[in-house]
């Protein structure tokens, strides 16, 4: 279980401190940074494909926009999608795992078989079809209700929901395993003998005990969702321009690789920011898991 000293024990390692630092810097820059840029950096301008300089630290892109500004804007959307998608998967996965583990027997078998099947299906391909099927309808629906925010952010909302819908499998497995073990402990038996309802046993006794594990896997789900989002955006089927995410920026950067002229900064800076963030998240998630479950 998560003891009070866990955080400080993990942060005793210098690598962990660096990772936490990276995350704080990226999150702060993404949430506050973009607004600090003057309008000339944000709008298309005459200065195309300028290499990095003191004026434009990360250079400029095809339309003369500042790449640092675009990277921070992309970070904002990628992080929002990652966090919110992971939150969706957290609810789904832990609810599913709790029910399967608590019910046990045939219900558990059937539910876990379904998870196995979903594991072996190309899930991202279905996500693409889902987005394609629902995006237009959601936008029409929002327009009819005059919800401006949903009209412009319909893609992001759909991405969050659908990516949450595919990344819950691991969470469900882990939670189920924990519940199966906890269920046989005497305090659960005591609660059952005392006649507490199933709902109460699940929410009052099981949930608090599996919370630490859930939090650990949440840290590992965020990078997975960010990676999925970037995959879709890279193919041009995720975040649409003028909005940007790390994936869509990397798609632009990858196109700029050609034998004649290499605009390396278009690829390098988004890639470095994204990979740095994912690396930090994965590292901290791993350390948390090792501390919680030294057997693994």
């Amino acid at each position: 279980m998560l003891e009070p000293g866990t955080a400080s024990r993990i942060l005793r390692r210098p690598t962990a401190r660096i990772c936490l630092g990276i995350l704080i810097v990226v999150a702060a820059a993404a949430s506050l940074g973009p607004e600090l840029f003057p309008a000339s950096y944000r709008e298309p301008g005459p200065l195309q494909y300028a290499p990095p300089s003191w004026q434009h630290l990360f250079g400029t892109d095809l339309n003369g926009r500042d790449v640092l500004y675009r990277v921070l804007l992309g970070a904002r959307i990628s992080l929002i999608v990652g966090l919110a998608g992971a939150a969706v998967s957290l609810f789904l996965g832990s609810a599913y795992g709790l029910i399967a583990g608590y019910a046990g027997g045939k219900v558990d078998n059937a539910m876990m078989r379904l998870v196995d099947i979903m594991y072996s299906v190309p899930r991202l391909i279905f996500i693409l079809i889902f987005i394609n099927a629902f995006d237009g309808h959601v936008r029409d629906f929002a327009a009819r209700l005059d919800w401006q925010w949903l009209v412009s952010y319909s893609r992001i909302v759909i991405l969050i929901i659908t990516l949450g819908l595919i990344e819950w499998l691991t969470m469900a497995r882990i939670v189920r395993g924990q519940v199966l073990a906890l269920k046989e402990r005497s305090f659960i038996h005591a609660a059952q003998v005392l006649g507490q309802s199933h709902l109460k046993i699940i929410t009052r006794h099981l949930l608090p005990n599996i919370l630490p594990i859930i939090i650990v896997y949440l840290t590992l789900t965020v990078p997975a969702v960010i990676l999925d989002e970037s995959f879709l955006s890279f193919l041009g089927l995720g975040i649409q321009p003028p909005q940007a995410s790390w994936g869509s920026l990397l798609a632009e950067g990858a196109q700029s690789i050609n034998p004649l002229k290499i605009y390396w900064w278009l690829l390098f800076f988004p890639a470095a920011t994204m990979s740095g963030t994912l690396l930090a998240l994965n590292y901290l998630g791993d350390r948390l898991r090792d501390t919680l479950d030294p057997r693994r």
Binding site: P223, L227, S230, F231, F234, G247, L250, A251, G253, A254, I257, P259, I262, W264, L267, A271, M274, S275, L278, L279, N282, Y283, D286
Partner: peptide, 29 residues
Amino acid sequence: ALLGLSIPMFVVGPILILLFGLWLKWLPV
């Protein structure tokens, strides 16, 4: 391994193209 998990394929690809395709010219791009 952690690095491999954290770098998306569409970054690894262009890096390999740059390195082995355009600079070293060992392999087709």
